[in-house]
Amino acid sequence: MIKLSTRTEYLSRLFADNGLVELRHHAGGRWQTGWFTDVDRIEREIQQREDHGDLYTSLNAPRPRSAPNAMRGEPITNDAIGWITRLPFDFDPVRPAGVCSTAGELAAANRRRDGLVAMLRKLDWPMPLHALSGNGYHAQYRCRLPNNGETAEMLRAIYSGLHAEYSDDEVDFDRSVRNPGRIFRLYGTINRKGPDTPERPHRRAQCWIPARWRQVDRHLIERLADQYARRAENRPPSSAGGAQSGFRATGRGDYRTLDIVALMRAHDLYRRALGNGAHSVWCPWRDGHSTPHGATGAVIFEDGPDTWPGFHCHHGSCNGRTIADVIAKLGDADQFCRDAFKGKRAS
């Protein structure tokens, strides 16, 4: 069940997950910021400011050592965040700069947001907070991820992938909102972007919070990141069996028929099946990871009969490595191919 929620309820959820919440006010071209530890105090400040400009709040949890600076009124920075507690997905209609959305533009953004939520529900993600920003539509998912390099890589893959899949010349998926220090429109206040006209009016931002607003399990976030990383980094070569990612394929095997699971098992790298053709494995370069035996490992993908399998590792030291690098590293992939390559290798 999901219902229209009050501003106080939304703020209470932020305090419960983050402890400290930043309120940022924009009016007359100037920004002012303040930090709060309870709903009553922040509500009093909001009531003094809401009729004069636009209001935003922080989304994520600051590190304890950042609290003194925050309480002195310093804006949040990415490095000051300790935990990512919100995954905000933001759909904005494509329109002229500096104006509000029309009703038709908003409807297009709403449909796009609902399409994403439906897709994630099929992947076992829980129901998110739904929101109208005033000019676009949001979905916010609760989570708890450390603000570190591995999380940054996961979110980069997800937001870049969603942008490629859901953006066009009608609606834009904003991939920039993944940064830890992001501020977001305060629901329950007026969005005053540009002139207030009958066709493009100022609107009140609103949100709808599920009765059970559950956190997304980390493994579901990892799986989505793997899916989009595979699409971005492991597209098959234009001429099957040819070069991929700078790799010169000189072996005899047709890598479209490579049994990637058998190859990983032979090198004691296989861990478990994840479903939908994905498998968790130990990274062949794990000895060089800063956290070589952490829960976040690598993933291989069986993509189909006419494509090479895929590979992705979350660790920053493996950024850019693909299945071609795995083949070169392990050295004996040919014997795990069902067929020999019959074409001409790229040189």
Rank of each mutant, 00 (worst) to 15 (best):
residue 206 Q to V: 06
residue 111 R to L: 15
residue 94 V to N: 13
residue 287 D to Y: 11
residue 74 E to V: 14
residue 170 E to H: 09
residue 267 H to W: 09
residue 274 L to G: 03
residue 80 A to G: 10
residue 146 P to T: 06
residue 115 G to S: 14
residue 59 L to D: 01
residue 46 I to Q: 03
residue 296 T to S: 13
residue 40 D to G: 09
residue 67 A to P: 00
residue 262 A to N: 03
residue 44 R to H: 09
residue 100 C to V: 06
residue 234 N to Y: 04
residue 30 R to D: 09
residue 122 K to C: 08
residue 222 E to P: 00
residue 243 A to E: 12
residue 112 R to S: 15
residue 303 D to G: 08
residue 167 S to P: 01
residue 217 D to Y: 07
residue 314 H to W: 13
residue 191 N to L: 06
residue 202 H to E: 05
residue 212 R to P: 00
residue 37 T to Y: 05
residue 108 A to P: 02
residue 285 W to F: 10
residue 231 R to N: 05
residue 21 V to R: 02
residue 84 I to L: 11
residue 56 Y to G: 01
residue 30 R to I: 09
residue 261 V to M: 08
residue 34 G to Q: 15
residue 290 S to N: 11
residue 138 H to L: 08
residue 102 T to R: 13
residue 54 D to Y: 02
residue 345 R to I: 11
residue 79 D to R: 15
residue 300 I to C: 01
residue 128 P to S: 13
residue 157 A to F: 00
residue 125 W to I: 07
residue 290 S to H: 13
residue 270 Y to V: 04
residue 164 A to H: 08
residue 226 D to L: 02
residue 35 W to Y: 11
residue 345 R to Q: 09
residue 85 T to P: 01
residue 45 E to F: 03
residue 334 D to K: 07
residue 128 P to E: 10
residue 101 S to F: 07
residue 292 P to A: 08
residue 267 H to G: 06
residue 345 R to T: 06
residue 130 H to T: 08
residue 185 R to M: 08
residue 164 A to D: 14
residue 52 H to V: 10
residue 319 N to W: 09
residue 259 D to Q: 10
residue 9 E to H: 12
residue 230 R to P: 00
residue 323 I to F: 03
residue 258 L to R: 05
residue 57 T to S: 07
residue 309 P to Y: 03
residue 19 G to P: 03
residue 35 W to E: 03
residue 22 E to N: 06
residue 270 Y to P: 02
residue 334 D to S: 12
residue 80 A to H: 01
residue 305 P to R: 15
residue 166 Y to G: 01
residue 324 A to Q: 03
residue 133 S to Q: 04
residue 216 V to T: 07
residue 86 R to Q: 14
residue 235 R to Y: 11
residue 20 L to M: 14
residue 188 G to T: 05
residue 311 F to Y: 15
residue 279 H to N: 08
residue 81 I to V: 15
residue 85 T to A: 08
residue 65 R to I: 09
residue 157 A to L: 00
residue 1 M to A: 14
residue 95 R to Q: 14
residue 171 V to H: 02
residue 201 P to F: 09
residue 4 L to Y: 07
residue 283 C to K: 06
residue 208 W to Q: 11
residue 210 P to K: 09
residue 243 A to K: 13
